[in-house]
Amino acid sequence: MTKFSETQLTEFNRLVARYPEGKQKSALLPVLHLAQDSFGGWLSSETMDYVAELLRIAPIEVYEVATFYSMYNLKPVGKYMFEVCQTGPCMLRGSDDIVAYIGEKLSIKPGETTADGLFTLKTVECLGACGYAPMMQLGKHYREHLTKEKVDAIIDECRKTAAANN
């Protein structure tokens, strides 16, 4: 059952309270982030309908927004999503090699998830870390100045955390 917990609802109310009376739709983007984080890292249509209901807007208004922004996942993704930047400045510093290396190491192509559901590889456009290229986003944080060794270390780290949490 898709429903926010007590603490999530408190956060929801905090988000909505930032906007003028009757403009609760403005909270849609942050609320979708909250929903995505709360319900398994992606937005199912059930989740989106729930958000629409909470914000008292039509479901289509939520779908329109969720499909517009690239950070909302409309399909399940791996536990760890490697979002590797491939735009100009990162390309100049060898991001293509990093993408290829991760793909080779995990035996997946960009856009795919490993069979164990642990990793998703995604190529993305500029994340604003051009001076620290090549880089990727992993969860909330950036991993910068990537090298093959660093990628190895990150993958190991993820595997260890996942094993510890199981």
Partner: peptide, 25 residues
């Protein structure tokens, strides 16, 4: 502080305003 969700176009001021209103950018 309002977080966007991945759209370069929201750096354009009127798209940003639309996004701030919870709409497509």
């Amino acid at each position: 502080v309002q977080r966007g969700a991945g759209a370069y176009i929201c750096g354009e001021e009127t798209a940003l305003i639309e996004s701030l209103e919870g709409k497509r950018g």
